[in-house]
Design a protein around this nucleic acid. Structure first.
Lengths: 144, 144
DNA sequence: CGATGACCGTCAGGTTCGTTGACTTCTCGG
DNA sequence: CCGAGAAGTCAACGAACCTGACGGTCATCG
């Protein structure tokens, strides 16, 4: 009855992909890096850096949540906070040299995972999946 | 580049559906019931009850995790633990009368959420989504 | 100009869903 | 009958979030 519920499947799938990403990064020599961290690195503008609030907005989480991730990456020397010259309240999150290297690796790792997913699903199903998720989230945030 | 990553979308979709389920249950007069609890109620065999370990297996989590949920539902009088007559180590989780009522409501709530999802996606896309997730999780646990 | 409100990052504390590890108790097969 | 191992439990923890509150900063509009 009620085949494994849709909600649970979505969660399980998320976990599976996140785990794959971590493995991928480990194999590339970046251990102990979590998916949320990798995802942040990908969202920082390479040239100008990005404000915390903007990063939060892009990731769809609160700035408090984002701050934790920035803290972690800052401690490990992948990003640093610099004051925003244009706005005394704000700080700009920038990639360090090491952070930029990591960023490139993350892009490859993400691509690898998505490629593998696409392969196991087949192109048509994969596109369908993304389309369905887009639609779902879109109409969801309208309702909210 | 790298449109909102697939992994994040899956997580967001999960949260959205879980939240919908909670709202659905609230409107039906079962407040403060979380998705994981509802999902457990649906997995308890109505007649004979089900062992904790089996519930954990069905939900794809550890027995420790499952125990927490059972504890919560037991406190609220929806299930109770009875010793398994066939196995002195085991206990059987059974629905109380109130639990059975809740179970029926949960089934309706889950059905309502999935129906709404299906409506926003359209039947074809909805089926495609489920198919894709099934496939993804299936090949995932083989690899594991 | 100066108050008022909105906005930035931050601190503190919670919540949800899950994990590993270390027992005790009990079963069952050789 | 005895040792491997499974059932349930206790304890501690982790990841990824959340809400609420607060001190600075900006911006704008009377």
């Amino acid at each position: 009855m009620t085949e494994p519920q849709l909600g649970r499947q979505l969660l399980a799938a998320h976990r599976a992909l996140a785990a794959e990403l971590v493995v991928e990064l480990e194999e590339r020599g970046w251990p102990e890096l979590r998916a949320s961290q990798a995802s942040l690195v990908l969202n920082v503008d390479r040239r100008s850096g990005t404000r915390l609030t903007e990063l939060a907005r892009r990731a769809g989480v609160t700035k408090q949540a984002m701050m934790v991730v920035v803290d972690e990456l800052e401690v490990r020397g992948f990003v640093r906070r610099t004051p925003d010259p244009d706005d005394g309240r704000a700080k700009v999150v920038r990639l360090t040299a090491r952070g930029r290297t990591l960023g490139a690796e993350c892009r490859r790792a993400v691509a690898a995972v998505e490629a593998r997913t696409r392969r196991t699903l087949g192109g048509r199903r994969y596109e369908g999946l993304r389309e369905a998720l887009d639609l779902l989230l879109e109409t969801e945030e309208e309702t909210a």
